[in-house]
Amino acid sequence: MTDTLVQATDLHKHFGNNRAVDGVSLHIKPGEIYGLVGSDGAGKTTTMRLLVGALLPNKGEIHVCGYDVLKQTELARSQIGYLSQRFSMYEDLSVLENIRFFAEVRGLSQTEWLPRSMEILEFVGLADFKDRRAGQLSGGMKQKLGLASALVTRPRLLLLDEPTTGVDPVTRQDFWQLVIKLVSMSPSPSGRGVRGEGVSVLISTPYMDEASRCHRVGFMKLGKIIAEDTPSNLRARLNGRVLELRGNPINTLRRIAHQDEDVEDVAAFGDKLHLRVKENAVKKVISRLTKQIKSQNAELIELRPVPPTLEDVFIALSDI
């Protein structure tokens, strides 16, 4: 038992001239939820495919649960559950039949698959729907079926590629509660369900509200991880440097903020502006802007320091 479940070192994957993954190293601990955050084309999906051994790297080493993915591919894979972006299921098969299919493909025997499938369906909350055709499920339920299928082999590493695209916040909340329970070290209170000791989750997303739920986040850009830390530590990098400004007319406020020498960046967010200011300049900026806004006959509703968001941090990192 090592204290690192995923150990990937200096991964490179090129497609022609495109360096899709350009020197990525990842170390994920048991019980950790790690978020790979970046835009389409940043290299998130390619990184996941390298980890499951579906693609061969041009360079680099990957160990999952101690197995070398390049040399012991099948052994490594047996430890991994993968929910891809385009998860497909058989719409005319029932929920249980779908899980059975995935279980049998992964080599589970007759005696194993049924109790395990029921346990997992119970865990994701689909037990009452086991006989329903997959095609009749709501979006959120389909997603849970996808998760259940990925869990049927009791993997120690779960890879989720943009799993909550297209679902509403209520469903997303449910989904995340499942993921967090899965990695949580304490057994479920009922003593039943899936025990999640040591399961790690690697999740990819372009959305900051998802990223903020992960234990640790790696910001990816052009095939590289440009920053990696816990969401709180990442936010702390900009502590005391983000101001929220509200008032009218917003375009005048924006222009005034832009002209201030200590304001590094002005971002419009609907009815408010977020200003990133130079270190230790908050007080100066507040007093200067307040005066400026008054002198230009604009209305100031509120100007105050706010806790930085992950979005503020991502943008600040991209500016460097």
């Binding site: 297209g166 916040p169 959305y207 900051m208 967010f269 609907g270 009815d271």
Partner: peptide, 27 residues
Amino acid sequence: HYMDEAEYCERVGVMREGKLLAMDTPT
């Protein structure tokens, strides 16, 4: 359906199950 995107709008209407539950500025 992305919160990240809705945050950029001046006013936001929240739809669920065919009903418009509210519409106002994010603040």
